[in-house]
């Protein structure tokens, strides 16, 4: 299954040509320089340090001080200015060293419904004993999570990303940054942790569960009087067809019994692709998803029939996850035609 990048978050505009081209180049360059891996240790080849806006403000203050010192020919003020300028040179090294040697690892991802937040479990750890402070991690455009590594050498945390489209979705690069210690420099990197989210279809109100199973009470089968299988004997009542009288037993001197037959009908709950004709693939999946959730809430056993996939009815959280995963992994558009509209497996 081809994984998709999250179009809703990283909107690649093809309209503004040059910027798009530059962005693509930067992305390609980053991809080369920082290849995807579940576990990335930050070092000089991955980290970039730039002054922040506050840092530029600091420079303006320095300029003011320098003018003051120069115009008044005041050596002490000039000295202080140079001291702060020295600080401005020294700080980026501290900023860099706050992130250098930090390892970010993907521990796993949690599935989510489209339109909700998918959560990645991350772990961050440091090399050496030097504490690391105020490390911000975020998906582009999202609110950062701030992490410190003070006494403990490692910590785990979650990063949520809104996902819009169903499927196996590749997460964008995680931004990691820190402007420790003075906030005048920012050290950052974009890490491709090769995280993939399983995104279930967005549930759309699908109405009541299909088929005439009103309330299941856990029944898997229901019986109707029929002709197929012998089910037992019953006291004969007038009106029972004579064909069904248990003559054998009667001959042995017993009372008159009537044989009872049953026929089985598969009345287990099936969530079937074919119940929803005439809608597009994603809508069908969304509706199935809603049914599955409803059935799970009502603690019914239910199965799933979609093209190329059949899951036997069952109950429980694990089963629900299996069903949702099948829905999530359903091929994306374009793969639809060969399946046909009614092609249940």
């Amino acid at each position: 299954m081809a994984s998709r990048s999250i179009a809703g978050n990283v909107r690649e505009s093809s309209s503004d040509g040059l910027r798009g081209w530059i962005k693509a180049r930067v992305k390609a360059w980053l991809g080369k320089r920082l290849p995807p891996a579940h576990r990335v240790t930050l070092d000089h080849s991955r980290l970039f340090v730039f002054p922040t806006r506050a840092g530029l403000g600091f420079l303006v203050i320095l300029l003011g001080l320098w003018l003051l010192g120069t115009n008044y020919e005041n050596n002490v003020i000039l000295g202080l200015t140079f001291l702060l300028l020295g600080l401005f040179v020294v700080v980026p090294l501290h900023t860099f060293s706050n992130l250098s040697g930090v390892t970010v690892a993907l521990r796993g991802t949690q599935p989510a419904f489209a339109g909700e937040h998918a959560v990645a479990n991350l772990r961050i750890e440091r090399r050496g004993k030097q504490p690391r402070e105020r490390i911000g991690l975020y998906w582009p455009g999202e609110v950062p999570v701030e992490v410190d590594l003070l006494e403990k050498g490692s910590t785990e945390f979650q990063l949520a990303l809104p996902v819009l489209e169903r499927g196996l979705v590749s997460a964008p690069r995680v931004c990691i940054e820190s402007s420790f210690p003075l906030g005048i420099f920012r050290c950052w990197s974009h890490l491709d942790l090769d995280a993939k989210f399983l995104v279930y279809p967005r549930p759309l109100p699908a109405g009541p569960l299909p088929v005439g199973v009103a309330s299941g009470e856990g029944k898997e089968k229901s019986t109707i009087a029929g002709m197929d299988d012998f089910a037992g004997l019953k006291n004969f009542q007038p009106g029972h067809p004579l064909k069904q009288v248990a003559w054998k037993q009667y001959a042995r001197g017993r009372e008159l019994y009537s044989k009872e037959f049953e026929s089985y009908r598969d009345e287990r709950l099936w969530l079937d692709w074919d119940y929803l004709p005439g809608r597009d693939v994603e809508t069908r999946l969304s509706l199935l998803c809603d049914w599955a959730l409803q059935a799970h809430r009502q603690q019914l056993a239910f199965g799933l029939r979609i093209p190329n996939k059949l899951i036997e009815p069952d109950k429980g959280r694990a089963h629900l996850n299996k069903i949702l995963e099948a829905l999530a992994r359903f091929p994306v558009r374009g793969a639809r035609d060969p399946l046909g509209q009614g092609g249940a497996a």
Partner: peptide, 13 residues
């Protein structure tokens, strides 16, 4: 940190 900046200050001065 300021101490680390002192050598630079001296040179600049």
């Amino acid at each position: 940190m300021l101490l680390q900046a002192v050598p630079l200050m001296l040179i600049l001065f």
